[in-house]
């Protein structure tokens, strides 16, 4: 490359012109970024709340439970059950009715799926009934685990009164049995693990669910 001996000014000129185009491009980018910043933020928030409200359709208002979020950040979930190793919880939300009374919780748990992190939101009422689950993100490799985003799979969890789900193969007999989705074994078990860890965390730590290790 750069075969310009004898012309000293060329290299300066080249560098200068490259600098100019870079600066122009940076300005253009900064400009677009400023314009799109707010819509992007709004989209992300809307998506987050939309995901949450789906798992707790009865809730009228959502409020982040700072105390539990903090607790979740510090806690190693594998101390609850070795099965939960690798699961993290990064959001706990109180689901409130129209009068502002707490009806239950929404917990967002993440675990490793087939290709990357799977995030699941689980709605869990104070009387121990799963209100619904939603896959908030299911990895970056297009196509993997996509079967799990259909309603049939998610509805398996809905309305079940349990403290954990069991993974089964084509022979789901109890309410809390979840059949493995053919072709998405890893993803199915990751989702079940994340849901179980979320529920386990709530039962252990939320006072109104009989837990409250911090009392």
């Amino acid at each position: 490359m750069g075969n310009n001996k004898g012309k000293k000014s060329t290299i300066l000129k080249d560098a200068l012109s490259l600098t100019i185009i870079t600066i122009i491009c940076s300005f253009a980018l900064a400009f677009v970024y400023e314009i799109t910043k707010d819509p992007i933020k709004a989209q992300e928030d809307a998506k987050k709340n939309a995901g949450y409200i789906v798992v707790y359709p009865d809730a009228k208002e959502l409020a982040t439970d700072e105390e539990l979020v903090e607790l979740a950040a510090e806690m190693d979930l594998s101390t609850l059950d070795s099965e939960f190793a690798g699961v993290t919880i990064d959001d706990v939300i109180q689901a409130l009715d129209s009068d502002g009374n707490k009806m239950g919780y929404i917990v967002k748990s993440n675990t490793r799926g087939y290709s990357s992190t799977i995030s699941v939101a689980t709605g869990y009422s104070l009387d121990g009934v799963v209100q619904g689950i939603e896959l908030l993100s299911i990895g970056d490799t297009v196509g993997y685990g996509m079967e799990l985003t259909n309603d049939e799979f998610k509805d398996r969890f809905k309305g079940v009164e349990t403290d954990h789900f069991v993974l089964t193969r084509d022979n789901a007999s109890n309410d809390n049995d979840i059949d493995v989705y053919s072709g998405s074994t890893t993803s199915t078990s990751a989702v079940v693990k994340a849901v179980n860890a979320g529920i386990g965390f709530l039962i252990e730590n939320a006072k109104d669910l009989g837990g409250g290790a911090n009392e």
Binding site: L18, I21, T22, C25, A28, L29, V32, Y33, I35, T36, P39, I40, Q43
Partner: peptide, 17 residues
């Protein structure tokens, strides 16, 4: 530089809208 800028702009627009 030019192509990467265009790509970033498209990506930002997609994220937003």
């Amino acid at each position: 530089v030019v192509v990467a800028s265009m790509v970033t702009i498209v990506q930002l627009l997609l994220q937003a809208y």
